[in-house]
Amino acid sequence: MTELLDIRRIYLEPAAAELPRGRQVLARWPEATIVEVESHQRIPELYGDETNVRRWVRIKREALVLGVKKTLTARPNGRSADFIAPSTANGCAMACAYCYVPRHKGYSNPVTVFANIERITAYLRRHAGRQGRKPEPNECDPVDWVYDIGENSDCSVDARLSDNVHDLVTLFRDLPNAKASFATKHVNRELLAWDPRGRTRIRFSLMPPADAKVLDIRTSGIDERIAAIDDFVAAGYEVHVNFSPVVVRDGWLDDWRDLLDRLDAGVGPAARRQLAAEIIFLTHNRGLHEVNLGWHPRAEDLIWRPDLQQAKRSQNGDLNVRYRTGAKGAYVHALTTLIAERTPYLRVRYAF
């Protein structure tokens, strides 16, 4: 794991060190330099790190932030999950070129672990209890309320930093009306021993290997992710696939055909019976585009395509680009038709 994580510097909110989970994390890296900070969201050495792109991956590998989650809310979602759970971490040690989650601590966005896990799990238990039984099926799940526990991080990586994800899997294992869900690009086989009893859904993100080689930096290989699916199903997880982001380029549909054939060859009957897919076409951001030009310009040749994209102003004022209306509908239709041909058992939950 030293290639992905080699923690040498921990930015610490002092209150986190007073909690059992905070002490656990500090004990894992006793040689790390401790830098006390007032807030996990305001760290001068990290905020503005987009101006120092040469340290981009080094920051992700060597820096960890340890803080306390102040506000706990479960936001309604309704597409991938019914609710977005309060984060037990944010940021990532991986460096996908299209990542949309960089926050106030800078675009490099190393992992922040929140130490007040007991408060977060207690909140989720109460929230799920208030929901009662799901009154009718929806595209999230036919029976249970689904909580996305990894909106702002990759839980498979987070599990290498603390026991927070294990505690969440344990929590949902015992909830009668709710299940956890998270997308991942990292195969962490330590999760296979956790006995989730079908109450955690893992969504392995997949894209053609040619795209992943350029865009999915510091992640598990596509074939490794596919090879893990049967093992995670056998270990008691519900496993879906997340086709995200879909990148349109010359030959893109041929490469997706090859990927679907790899998936078909790589999973057995048990996985096929419960497999479903989410499809998300690329959305990119002008600010991230400018940053990427400083550390990974080759990626921008794939994902910054003004000839194919149109601009859209987001709610926070950022300028995003996505594939042009009309053309995008044709792309979606082409891919979903291909899925029906090559992997007819693969239910498409939604595509946009």
Results as ranks from 00 to 15, higher is better:
L5S: 00
A16D: 00
L19A: 04
P20F: 02
R21D: 14
R21G: 05
Q24L: 14
D49T: 12
E50V: 11
R58W: 15
I59F: 00
L66D: 07
V68P: 09
K69H: 14
A74T: 10
A81R: 12
F83R: 10
C92A: 06
C92P: 11
Y98G: 04
Y98I: 06
V101T: 13
G106Q: 03
P110L: 01
A122E: 10
R126W: 09
E136K: 05
P137L: 02
V143P: 04
V143D: 10
C155G: 06
C155E: 15
V169H: 05
R173D: 03
S181L: 15
N188I: 08
R189D: 13
R199W: 05
F204P: 02
V214P: 04
R225H: 03
R225C: 00
D230C: 07
D231S: 13
F232R: 04
Y237V: 07
P245W: 02
L253P: 10
W256F: 02
G266V: 06
F281V: 03
F281A: 10
T283S: 11
H296L: 12
E300F: 05
D301V: 14
L302P: 04
I303T: 03
G326Q: 08
A327V: 15
A330C: 00
R342M: 08
P344Y: 07
R347Q: 13
R347D: 13
R349M: 13
